[in-house]
Structures are given as C-alpha cells and as structure tokens.
C-alpha cells in the first residue's frame, strides 16, 4: 500500500466520520436556515445524479451495454424495486446485452 493511498484513505475516513458524528453528538435543535436545509436535502440526489450521468456509460465493456443497463435500472426503479433488485437487474441486463454486442 502506497503512502499516498493510505493518506488519502485517512483523509476520506476522517472527513466522512466528522460529517456523521458532529450533528448527532453536538446538535440538539433543528437547522434554522430553510435555504441551507433545502440545499442539504437536494444535495444527495444531485450528487448521485451527477455521478451516474454520464459516467455510468464507462462502467461496463461498452457504452451501449451500459445504456441498456441504465434503462433496466430506471425501469426497475420506476416499478419501485429495492436497491438490491435494481443493482442486480441492471447487471443482468448488461450481461445479456453483451452476449449480443460483444463476441
């Protein structure tokens, strides 16, 4: 393990822990700023969206098979399936698509 990877891991770990630990340990009331509350509420969905689109297209052997996987994931999510089902379903769709796309 390189020193860079180890230090970067610790940086991530400390930041993540502080984010989780601070409110539950220190804060007892509700955030007063509605604006800040709103930003915080939207941020998780914005970040997941920005991480997924368009990078999901690079996550498999071909952008086309990834697109098939994305469509499968969206369809399953629209059908209100759980996290595990959607993740496995997307993988299965990619697998099947690549049987046809990649020889």
């Amino acid at each position: 393990m390189s020193r860079y990877v180890f230090t970067a891991t610790m940086v991530m770990a400390v930041v993540t822990y502080l984010v989780r630990m601070t409110p539950i340990t220190l804060m007892r009331g509700r955030l007063k700023s509605r604006f800040f509350r709103s930003v915080l509420a939207y941020a998780p969905y914005a970040v997941l969206s920005a991480m997924t689109i368009p990078h999901i297209l690079d996550s498999t052997a071909s952008p086309l098979s990834a697109l098939v996987g994305l469509i499968a994931a969206v369809a399953l999510a629209m059908m209100k399936r759980g996290l595990l089902t959607v993740a496995v379903g997307a993988s299965a769709a990619v697998f099947v698509a690549e049987l046809f796309l990649i020889h």
Binding site: P44, Y45, L48, M51, T52, H55, I56, S59, T60, A66, G69, L70, A73, V74, L76, A77, R81, G82, L83, T85, V86, A87, V88, G89, A90, S91, V94
Partner: peptide, 10 residues
C-alpha cells in the same frame, strides 16, 4: 454497473 444501479434506485 451494480453500484450505479443502486444510485438509480435511490
């Protein structure tokens, strides 16, 4: 693609 599938599901 699995981890992205989970993001989509969220």
């Amino acid at each position: 693609i699995a981890i992205y599938g989970m993001f989509v599901a969220i």
